[in-house]
Amino acid sequence: MKHLLVATTASLLLAACAGGGLATTESSLQHHRWALASVNGEPVDAGIGSELAIGEHMAISGLAGCNRFFGSAKLEQGRLRADPLASTKMACLSDSIQQVETAVLATLTQGAEVRHEGRQLTLTGGDYVLGYRLADED
């Protein structure tokens, strides 16, 4: 019986290492503010100030591009989805800001696979990949 327990534990550890580590949890995302660094691998102008804050009970808020948003999110089976998500309705001043806005709001509302590694957070949705960096200490 002891050998079975050791073998099972070793198998679980190897599977976790092969899969890139432990799964992202709500507690690892909560109480942090994330600055958007890239959309689909392309850098985002830091002057846009797009950010995502995840608070207690997965309450989310932030700046998509030109509009602020807020709501609640769920993390289920490694996917983050904000439902419902509300936002202000101001017109964006440029196409580049509108593109960032569209990517952020679509990804959050449609749902995205979450990858959290240290100070990096990646949300991979159906149309966009959002790359965030931890902004708590900025």
Rank of each mutant, 00 (worst) to 15 (best):
L5M: 11
L5F: 13
V6N: 07
V6G: 03
A7M: 08
T8N: 06
T8S: 14
T8E: 09
T8P: 06
T9Y: 11
T9L: 15
A10M: 12
A10D: 03
A10L: 15
A10N: 06
S11M: 14
S11L: 15
L12R: 08
L14N: 00
L14H: 03
L14T: 02
L14G: 01
A15V: 00
A15R: 01
A15S: 09
A16Y: 03
C17M: 13
A18G: 06
A18L: 10
A18R: 07
G19H: 12
G19M: 09
G19Q: 13
G19A: 14
G20F: 04
G20D: 06
G20Y: 12
G20T: 04
G20H: 12
G21V: 02
G21K: 13
G21Y: 08
G21E: 07
G21D: 01
L22V: 04
L22K: 10
A23N: 12
A23M: 11
A23P: 02
T24Y: 12
T24W: 07
T24S: 13
T25A: 11
E26I: 09
S27A: 15
S27C: 06
S28E: 07
S28C: 04
S28M: 10
L29G: 01
L29T: 00
L29H: 13
L29F: 08
L29M: 08
L29W: 05
Q30C: 02
Q30L: 08
Q30H: 07
R33E: 07
R33S: 13
R33G: 00
W34N: 00
W34P: 00
W34Y: 05
A35F: 09
A35W: 03
A35D: 01
L36M: 07
L36S: 05
L36I: 05
L36A: 02
L36K: 06
L36Q: 02
A37G: 06
A37I: 07
S38R: 15
S38N: 14
S38D: 04
S38C: 10
N40S: 04
N40I: 08
G41Q: 11
E42G: 06
P43K: 15
P43D: 08
D45C: 11
D45E: 13
D45T: 09
A46G: 05
A46P: 00
A46R: 15
G47E: 13
G47L: 11
G47D: 06
I48P: 00
I48K: 13
I48S: 10
G49R: 10
G49Q: 11
S50T: 05
S50W: 03
E51V: 10
E51H: 15
L52R: 13
L52I: 05
A53Y: 06
A53L: 14
A53F: 04
